[in-house]
Write a protein that binds this DNA or RNA. Structure first.
Lengths: 392, 392
DNA sequence: TATTAGTTTATATAAACAACTAACTTACGA
DNA sequence: TCGTAAGTTAGTTGTTTATATAAACTAATA
């Protein structure tokens, strides 16, 4: 517990954990120098952390040219434990297991077309059993995180288009079952956390990620922290109202009805009278120059461009990331949106996130690891996984 | 200086100052009970603050029915010093002097139509001399704050439509001149700070204020803190691009070109061929039902409605405030916008700020007082001044 | 006499400090 | 080439200092 008494102790321990986390190796003197703490203070906290098993020794380092004792190199013990993360969306269920440092251990995926919540819970439990069976860490499972395509507030799902979660409190269910902390977060927010915590540049503390799936959502990082809004309602930009270009009536439509992946696919199926067409067919017909399809995509590009532009003037981010399976399928879309934005003199860099299966899971991993370590208010930097790529 | 050593002392002192600030009277035991500190800890810090003159005694309070010694009531000594605030806009210059607790002492105003920066500085200095002459506080001037109609970043004006500030660093100029801290803030942000810190409900920590003047800007409070965006660029929603209703071309226009006060007045003067018409004439012709004028206003109402709606889904605030001399002149506008928003099922309460001369100045006063007291990260609640009213 | 406000004194925690040991490099003389 | 002294750096140990808490006190009330 943090009382007034041991406030500085807790703070100093957090600073040391942060330093351990963010640097692949360090030593006691280095900690003292960087954190401006006395060597004895560092030693005292080091002993505490070491006793709890959070520190791993890396042997001796090199001494300087002018001599001196060699430092004992140390690092965070990633084998201390593991966390599980799940992404729940329209497509089904994806999961990821990472060590305490966010390093991927394994992934799993299960598509669920028509499912009820019981089915989903059973599938999650099956995955958890597998994960628990292959555990090779010191203290085992430390926490579970969920990324949800819907509005989340205080670890409760407020609304989601996919399942009926009114009947079940996911957090309570899994906390009771596995006796570890469980957190829930909105998918777009999780992706934003991923970009911030796994980002290659360390100094980007104001960014937005735009997720284009069934709807259109923004994840917002402000000054390094997630901006959720009142009751988690911030960033629902898909619900913005616009006049359709050339529409002479007074009618307003939601932007996501014009440019979300779902809206585009629905319209495509309708135009082509093929209820089973997928992204693949959309890509093929677009490639072939099919007029209807090209018009459909061009229109979406127009709407997307202004929506992104407007998000930038609204949120004032340093960087924008787009997270969209649609754009991964049809690379032309991002290319054209990008060019249009440059034509509009938008001088904020914009990137596409590739490997869009992992970002929300990794962001969730970061969130639960922050929580497990009691480091909610500290920036922890994670290593970029090879499976995820950036394109600009 | 905050070192690891005296961290808890600094924190506890801040907690006590916060409590003193936010409650018109308190006592040492009460501080100890509320802050969960030992009575002796409170006494120790009390003595420190008392020696520095920050505390004023209010005599003895009442003892309980069951007896016991009467408490010595204390309060923050508002007479400790004063701060000066200036609002610089297209209309000219407004200023406000407050005590350390944000209580108004005096105001001044000077309209400047065609001015250069030198003129402006001279006018500010003149006002400052008057303020200094009538000073009745213990330690005199403590700080100066500026509210600027333009983008501000790290106390520097990045851009403003009104003056050429490239040549002058206001902060440095006045810090050198008066040897007190000087801060600059964007006007919409200052209004947002005003609504948060002077707000009647204490628990609204997510709100936006929409300022409608020459342009259209949003001030955003997230979790009790100002959200400025990268280089202060957040909230420039006037620069959002939209299709004009019924426009069959592909052209996009800035929303502020359709619904800002300046845009409306400009168009009004153009339609009526009267370059000197002001808000008064606009109001009169609107009242008389002049077709051109009614259409102009109706169109602005339409654009304002969707812009506010879109801001709400983007930022997810708990409350929205509108700050607009235009709406103060023509109350119909707010009434209609409000009704339209209800028709759109926007369930976030929206209020109009009346007395729009003071909010930005009072918000700036809060900012500089926070700074002077070293309380940047603490919420200080100010008393609502009688001159400012809310309408919903 | 019981109760509450506030102070004083003693004690505990933890950070800083100073002085130590440990372990290294370099320089230099035999 | 070896040995050793001098200098350097890492990390520990004992001491001091700041500060929060606890307990025992005084003061003032119903």
């Amino acid at each position: 517990m943090v009382s007034s008494r041991n406030l500085s102790r807790v703070t100093n321990r957090q600073l040391i954990i942060q330093q351990l986390f963010n640097h692949s190796q360090t030593s006691r003197v280095e900690l003292a120098r960087i954190l401006k703490l006395n060597k004895s203070t560092v030693s005292s906290i080091y002993n505490e952390l070491n006793k709890s098993g959070l520190i791993k020794s890396l042997g001796l380092g090199e001494s300087t040219n002018s001599g001196g004792r060699r430092p004992h190199l140390i690092t965070l013990n990633k084998q201390y434990g593991w966390v599980a993360c799940f992404d729940i969306g329209g497509y089904g269920l994806r999961s990821l297991v990472t060590y305490l440092n966010g390093e991927m251990i394994q992934v799993a995926e299960k598509s669920l077309d028509t499912i009820n919540v019981r089915e989903l819970l059973k599938e999650i439990d099956r995955m958890m059993e597998n994960f628990l069976a292959s555990d090779d860490t010191d203290h085992g499972l430390l926490g579970i995180g969920f990324s949800v395509h819907g509005v989340v507030y205080e670890n409760k799902i407020q609304s989601t288009p996919f399942f009926d979660f009114k009947s079940i409190d996911l957090q309570k269910y899994f906390e009771d079952r596995y006796h570890v902390p469980v957190i829930l977060e909105n998918e777009a927010n999780a992706v934003a956390v991923f970009e911030h915590d796994f980002g290659r540049e360390n100094n980007v503390d104001d960014l937005i990620t735009i997720s284009i799936h069934a709807g259109l959502g923004v994840g917002i990082i402000v000054d390094g922290d997630l901006y959720r809004g009142y009751r988690g309602q911030a960033g629902e930009i898909g619900r913005q109202l616009v006049h359709r270009r050339g529409d002479t009536t007074a009618s307003l439509v939601k932007v996501e009805s014009l440019c979300s992946e779902k809206a585009i696919l629905d319209r495509f199926r309708q135009i082509k009278h093929r209820p089973n067409y997928q992204l693949k067919q959309l890509y093929l017909l677009y490639q072939r120059g099919d007029t209807d399809t090209v018009n459909l995509i061009d229109n979406a590009i127009t709407v997307l461009t202004t929506t992104i532009y407007n998000a930038v003037v609204s949120y004032g981010p340093q960087v924008v990331y787009l997270n969209s399976p649609l754009m991964e399928s049809i690379p032309d879309i991002f290319r054209k949106v990008h060019h249009r934005l440059i034509d509009l003199n938008m001088n904020v860099p914009i990137y596409e996130i590739r490997g869009s299966r992992y970002p929300s899971l990794l962001g969730t991993s970061s969130l639960i690891i922050h929580h497990v370590l009691g480091m909610e208010n500290y920036s922890l930097k994670f290593k970029w996984p090879k499976e995820v790529n950036h394109i600009d």
